[in-house]
Design a protein around this nucleic acid. Structure first.
Lengths: 153, 153
DNA sequence: GTTGAAACTTATTAAAC
DNA sequence: GTTTAATAAGTTTCAAC
């Protein structure tokens, strides 16, 4: 896999911003003609740098007004406890992200709910009823500050 | 904005999975003919349920092997302190997400770096040199557990 | 909701430079 | 790398059911 040059990074930034831009418009923005621009996009896709394309949704318009980060600590149930925890997580659609982390806790979850009552129900009836879960700490997202750069470079 | 039915949700799930699927294929998957399927997609876009489309990248292939969550506590610098913090955050491309949260801390950041040395430099030279930042707590992501459902419903 | 057809845009490929 | 041309595919709009 060849190293990326500035034009490749420019292409990636544009495709992050608009995943459905036409090759003609993309070529125009990055200062190439359509043919090599299309070749570069295809190479980025084939190399796996671009994993795919996805619609970006407005969760609030779907009735999911509240998102939270929940830090979860597990203990005392060995490998099966972790396995059961991950099974329970995978079965819950309101959990959109699940990370194993190193730090003060074991897992970090991103969860979407309609209101605070649903959040309370989720924490009590779903999370804390998983045997291996010994401690949860919930951070309610009050605001997402938009980052101007859509790519970390 | 009319309420979404099951077909609309099916369309959203498919577009989350593949934001570049053709209307013909999408219609086939959701059990509609192309004309009404295209109308629904357009309505979801116009209503703002679909905010846009974006390429999904493999950050590791871009040399960003490490992602972390960093919880930040601010204090003692009033509104200007917060403003300066947010300006500093907005200027750093390695910070891809920034959330104001309610909980044990004030802000939650998602940060991407190439290696642990860069992480250390970032925490010390960038984050902790911001006057209002009084405390940071870093969680290194060891693994992202994929959630089978791509939508929280 | 369905089908079908025409007009338009875009993507892809090849051939030239 | 660029341009041009031809083919193929997808989108959009319209009419009719």
């Amino acid at each position: 896999m060849a190293a990326l040059d500035e034009i490749d990074r420019h292409i990636l930034r544009e495709l992050r911003r608009n995943g459905r831009i036409s090759i003609l418009d993309l070529a125009d923005r990055v200062g190439l003609s359509p043919t090599p621009c299309g070749r570069r996009v295809k190479r980025l896709e084939d190399d796996g740098v671009i994993r795919g394309y996805a619609a970006t949704l407005d969760n609030a318009r779907l009735g999911l007004n509240i998102s939270v980060f929940i830090m979860v600590r597990l203990s005392g149930h060995g490998p099966e406890g972790t396995r059961d925890f991950l099974s329970a997580v995978a079965a819950r659609p309101e959990i959109t992200e699940c990370f194993l982390v190193a730090g003060n806790v074991d897992y970090m979850l991103r969860v979407w709910v309609g209101d605070l009552e649903e959040l309370g129900d989720f924490v009590r009836d779903v999370l804390q009823s998983i045997p291996a879960v010994t401690e949860t700490s919930t951070m309610v997202v009050l605001k997402e500050e938009p980052q101007p750069e859509v790519l970390p470079f």
